[in-house]
Computed example of a mutant assay.
Amino acid sequence: MLTFTEAQLMGWITPVLWPFLRVLGLFTTSPLFSTRAIPVRARIGLAFLIALCAQASLQGQPTVALDSPAMLGALVQQVGIGMAIGFTVRLVFTAVELAGEVVGLQMGLNFASFFDPMSNAQTSAVSKFMSNIAMLLFIAINGHLTILMAVMKSFDAFPIGGSLMQALARARIHELGADLFASALWIALPMIALLLFANLTLGVISRVAPQMNIFAIGFPVTLVAGLAGITLTLPMMEQPLTMLMEQMMVRLAGGR
């Protein structure tokens, strides 16, 4: 008859439990894994599988017993760090969506908004299109594998049993707000310049030929110019998206 001691059970459960909670926190907020298309049971099973497969690379982690006073702090730390990693990746997609909002405003397409059931928010057509392109590019550059690797690397920078607030302060996630707006303007800048040139041209035409109904031709011209700008800039979106992902990895590794 096989018998197990409490110490043996804790030695088997705790090495899998803490990575499982951190990965599960990631799946709660990350752009790809948190969608409603993935059932909750599938997320839980995938998080357990990842935690189980990562045991070979997580040797030497501090052991926190489930009946110790530090257990609650470790639980909050694992879930908080996982959610912070997913939130950081979400900010990368938010930069692309913000660029789409700015471009849609310049094109006059911001009125073409609709309710997105996946995000439970109102979004414009241009913003949703650029978000979908960013998601496809994210998968093409193996971004989903990158964030899983970031979770595993985070155990080196933020080991089990540490302070959640110290981990967040070291990752400097609060500084990503400025990078969000800067990256969004960087992505949208070529299209903004093209649409500004189109509007200036229409303004000159309205002054040279006042009898022309500039309102009748203004919207089709800006719409065509915006679509042409999106077509020309989409192949160049990989560079800013890759740069933002690398910056995210450096922050989550505790680097400067």
Rank of each mutant, 00 (worst) to 15 (best):
F155I: 06
V224D: 00
L49Y: 01
Q239K: 13
A70T: 09
P15H: 03
R43L: 02
A182S: 14
V79W: 12
P159M: 11
L168W: 11
F215G: 01
F129S: 12
F197R: 00
P117V: 09
F155A: 09
F129A: 14
A193C: 10
T14L: 12
F181L: 15
A95G: 10
V96Q: 04
L98C: 05
D156E: 12
V76T: 11
P15I: 03
S113T: 07
V221Y: 03
L21E: 06
H144N: 14
M237C: 02
L21A: 13
F27H: 12
P31G: 07
F87P: 00
T146C: 01
D116N: 15
Q166V: 11
D156P: 00
M118V: 13
I217F: 12
I50N: 02
C53M: 11
A42F: 10
L185H: 01
P235Q: 07
M130H: 01
T35R: 15
V208G: 00
A209R: 06
A225C: 09
R90P: 00
M237I: 11
F111I: 15
E6I: 14
A95K: 09
L98M: 14
S183M: 11
G162M: 05
V79I: 15
G73T: 10
R256F: 06
F33R: 02
N132C: 03
Q61H: 02
S163F: 06
R22T: 08
A157V: 09
W12T: 06
F158Y: 15
L91D: 01
M243G: 14
G80E: 04
S30Q: 13
G255I: 08
L91P: 00
K128F: 10
A157T: 10
I217Y: 07
L227I: 10
A184F: 07
P235S: 09
M1D: 11
M10Q: 15
A84H: 07
I187G: 04
I214G: 05
G80R: 03
L234M: 11
G177K: 05
K153N: 15
L32Q: 06
F115K: 01
Q61Y: 03
S119D: 12
I139F: 12
M248I: 13
S183R: 09
G229V: 05
M249S: 11
L49W: 02
P220N: 06
T231Y: 12
T14P: 01
L24I: 05
T201C: 08
M135S: 14
W18C: 06
T123Y: 01
A188T: 03
L105T: 13
L234K: 04
V151C: 13
N199I: 03
G11A: 13
F114A: 13
S119G: 07
Q166Y: 02
V151P: 02
W18E: 06
D67H: 09
M237R: 01
Q77H: 11
L232R: 06
T231E: 02
A184T: 09
S119P: 00
P220F: 04
T5M: 03
G104N: 04
F20R: 02
M165Y: 04
M165R: 10
I38K: 01
T88Q: 09
L223Y: 06
L244V: 09
S154G: 09
A42E: 06
